[in-house]
Design a protein around this nucleic acid. Structure first.
Lengths: 209, 209
DNA sequence: GGCGCTCAGTGACTAAGTCACAGTCCCCGG
DNA sequence: CCGGGGACTGTGACTTAGTCACTGAGCGCC
């Protein structure tokens, strides 16, 4: 999949207008794109890199809601543009990110003129809604040890991951201590080895026969 | 606010097309409009009544995600129409409901032709996203007794409410036993009086000075 | 009046979250 | 090279929430 994957199915004329009318911005890793309460000035599309969207509760705890990957439009921004309300969550770049910023006017025009563009935008919205519904179910009903195991399984191929217990707690929407204890348990079981800021997976007998 | 509040800002010509092209359906209370996995056949707008949208986890537990009130379009259906995927949640009427069903073709036309229509639809989407984000925060971080108290406070003006502990548990996404115990506690404190399927609020000294 | 169903209450236990604090690793400046 | 401070991790003690198993109460209906 090449850059700007979302627009690929669109007619060339539309793609050209997007290229001409939008502004491309490069942002370093770890930057905050917007915070809760900010207003927004255009529709961002992530061209390369990943943006993490998370929210912080009154208690000061945070949880990762979803990620905007290369080729995704920021649905949160659409909501802001439409209702005029500020963002409810915050967005942080996880890697160096290239963002294409469509001005509101162009966005409006394209929504009016291109069925394909509308399709792309609405589908993106639908997926986000789905993501959040899934997350609600996870948080409300699933056990922490299961969720942690699943998260780890998704990152296992890397052999080791650099992450603090605190960050992992935010991924799962729980407390640091809970993560620490569950990880310690897994370490005792010989599934992994813990270091400061790193989790190393051990090649246990689970991988192959 | 009269019927079909969402369309009110729209040009009369558009409103007429909506009236002519859509089908109006009356549904009794307690009916299931769609279940998880169903496909969908048009864009429903709730004209009168309330529809509850909830999902059920693998564990068999359910949680109420949000309600579609009179004047709201069903964003979940838009997602289904766009992506072709089935619903992830289920919708149940809470009262006798009148629904206006826009055929997909008309929906597409209106999205293309009416900026006001687009605005209404996108804003509805934005609000849903907000609702769900708020819910995630609630479920992940807030205490059950607080959430229950808040729910009760919202229904207090009615004097008494007819609801089972099980239903209340689904509202909050918790277990029936938890609700029972918390309610019992409030009863001991003299804030309310419990009956089979009913909660009566007692006029304690909290209301006025 | 007894049968069966739904609803509510409860004890015992496990899981998760909170609080407080101790230990450890690591960088950085002196 | 050493010491101090900050970030990260470990842990005990306790509270809150969820689970399981079961009892009993209310209520409609033969």
């Amino acid at each position: 999949m090449s850059e700007q994957g979302v627009w690929q199915g669109l007619p060339e004329a539309i793609q050209a207008r997007i290229r001409d009318g939008s502004q491309v911005v490069d942002i370093a890793a770890g930057e905050v794109l917007f915070r809760a309460g900010d207003g927004c000035r255009g529709l961002p599309l992530v061209v390369t890199g990943t943006v993490r969207v998370q929210m912080t509760g009154a208690s000061g705890h945070s949880i990762v809601l979803y990620r905007v990957e290369a080729g995704d439009v920021c649905t949160l921004s659409i909501g802001c543009l439409m209702t005029g309300a500020g963002y409810r969550a915050e967005a942080v770049t996880e890697s160096p990110v290239t963002v294409q910023l469509l001005p509101v006017v162009l966005f409006e025009q394209l929504m009016a003129q291109s069925p394909e563009f509308r399709q792309v935008v609405m589908a993106a919205y639908g997926r986000r809604l789905d993501d959040l519904m899934l997350l609600v179910e996870e948080v409300a009903f699933r056990r922490m040890d299961e969720r942690l195991a699943e998260w780890l399984a998704g990152h296992r191929p890397r052999g080791e991951i650099r992450i603090t217990h605190q960050q992992l707690a935010v991924e799962l929407g729980t407390a640091r201590e809970v993560v620490s204890r569950l990880l310690k348990e897994l370490e005792h079981q010989g599934q992994l080895q813990l270091g400061r800021g790193v989790i190393r997976f051990l090649a246990s007998s689970t991988s192959s026969a």
